[in-house]
């Protein structure tokens, strides 16, 4: 399987193939190395050739966080199939309504916007209290607040949808 990997410096192709012994053959820039992975939770020990690499992260469809040798990197990984499917769908397609989710469990101390308010990416939309701190939750897209699904003083779980942002 070929992957397109981006860690901030442009797309790079990486080929990954499972060997019979459970290890991997990985090809990058014309060089092939054998890779062995052991994982506990999201902690990974990799042998990349003779290099011992400690890594932490959970792969996701969008950009995800990977810590390699103590460096935090934002990575995107797409298989060639995924890339092609996305191209067929039309380069990402029309903007869909996006949701703002609670990034942690806690208590909604205040919703800062009302339905109909215009927000831009980064606008604070709610304050959630958790671990003794008030934490600002910010819009991750630009648009108009279409729906608010929580009330002040409500308890929320991490991942709960707080509000929906759509096109004006």
């Amino acid at each position: 399987m070929n992957y397109i990997v981006n860690i901030g410096g442009g797309d790079q192709a990486v080929g990954v193939r499972r060997r019979d012994d459970g290890r991997w053959e990985v090809t990058h820039r014309g060089e092939t190395v054998v890779v062995d992975v052991r994982s506990t939770g999201d902690l990974h020990s990799l042998m990349i050739g003779a290099k011992s690499v400690e890594a932490q992260g959970r792969p996701d469809d969008g950009p995800w966080r990977l810590v390699v040798r103590g460096r935090t990197l934002e990575v995107s990984v797409e298989s060639e199939q995924e890339r092609n499917a996305r191209a067929v769908a039309g380069g990402g397609g029309a903007a869909k309504p996006s949701v703002v989710k609670a990034s942690m469990p806690g208590f909604v101390s205040k919703v800062l916007v009302r339905v109909g308010d215009k927000v831009v990416k980064g606008t604070p939309v709610a304050i959630i209290e958790a671990m003794k701190m008030e934490n600002e939750i910010r819009a991750e897209s630009t648009g108009v607040v279409k729906e608010i699904r929580v009330a002040d003083r409500q308890t929320v779980n991490g991942g709960d949808v707080l509000l929906v942002i759509g096109e004006g």
Partner: peptide
Amino acid sequence: TERLALITAAVLKHE
């Protein structure tokens, strides 16, 4: 580090 990160990211994604 970048090379090792690229390989790590691809392998983890595949796994």
